[in-house]
């Protein structure tokens, strides 16, 4: 393992502009979270044409082009910066592939007040995600029944509740990062999260099967 890989994110960021491998390493470290973001927010009409890896590939190239513009030097803001680039890439890809459709469908609702707009997580794409039906071939892959129930429960929530749960659990954002993305106070983000959990639990509880198992 070379010395570069052992460094912390903050140590690496110092060399972001002069060492090309730094971006690759940092991108690699954040990849699981960025991947989930791309997968959850990719329009289902693009399935078969694009997958989250394509989105990340484009976002990576875009990040390397824009690297000189990254100003702040702490790792959390760097992750949020990468996240914005992935969001921007998603918007661009949706425009390119869906054209007028995307605008008609009114998908460009901002959830990302801090910068370029990322498509909102909608129940349909979330549902598909949880069903693992992102590719036409996936009908051969069995998903656990639990996912279906979870997907239905999430669909039963308001967009606000769903968003905060997805950010915290699927995209693995910290409360502080959620507050920055949603542009609200840390305290408000925390309260919103706990309330959303309580409402999700209430929806899940109506399902007797879930109740028995948990």
């Amino acid at each position: 393992m070379s010395s570069l890989e052992d460094r912390t994110d903050d140590e690496l960021l110092i060399h972001l502009r002069d060492e090309p491998r730094v971006l690759a390493i940092l991108f690699a470290r954040h990849r699981p979270r960025l991947w989930r973001m791309a997968q959850l927010r990719l329009d289902r009409r693009l399935l078969g044409r694009l997958d989250p890896d394509d989105v990340l590939q484009e976002a990576y190239l875009d990040a390397s082009r824009r690297i000189q513009h990254f100003q702040r030097e702490d790792s959390s803001s760097f992750f949020l910066w990468l996240r914005l680039i992935v969001g921007q890439t998603l918007v661009d890809l949706h425009r390119r592939h869906l054209g007028a459709l995307a605008r008609d469908a009114g998908r460009e609702v901002s959830i990302d007040h801090a910068g370029p707009h990322a498509p909102e997580v909608d129940s349909a794409s979330m549902a598909l995600e949880l069903m693992g039906q992102l590719t036409p071939a996936s009908h051969v892959f069995q998903r656990r029944e639990m996912s279906q129930r979870m997907q239905e429960a999430l669909e039963g929530l308001s967009a606000t509740d769903r968003e905060v749960l997805v950010l915290r659990h699927f995209e693995e954002l910290t409360n502080s990062e959620v507050s920055q993305v949603l542009n609200i106070q840390a305290k408000a983000a925390s309260i919103r999260y706990v309330r959303a959990l309580a409402r999700l639990k209430a929806v899940l509880e109506r399902d007797p099967e879930f109740h028995e198992e948990s």
Binding site: R36, D51, T135, M150
Partner: peptide
């Protein structure tokens, strides 16, 4: 509920070929 959310989290996987 938290545990259930975590369990259902999508995992970064290799993309499946479209024809399986």
């Amino acid at each position: 509920t938290i545990a259930a959310m975590e369990k259902n989290k999508p995992h970064p996987t290799a993309a499946l070929p479209s024809d399986g």
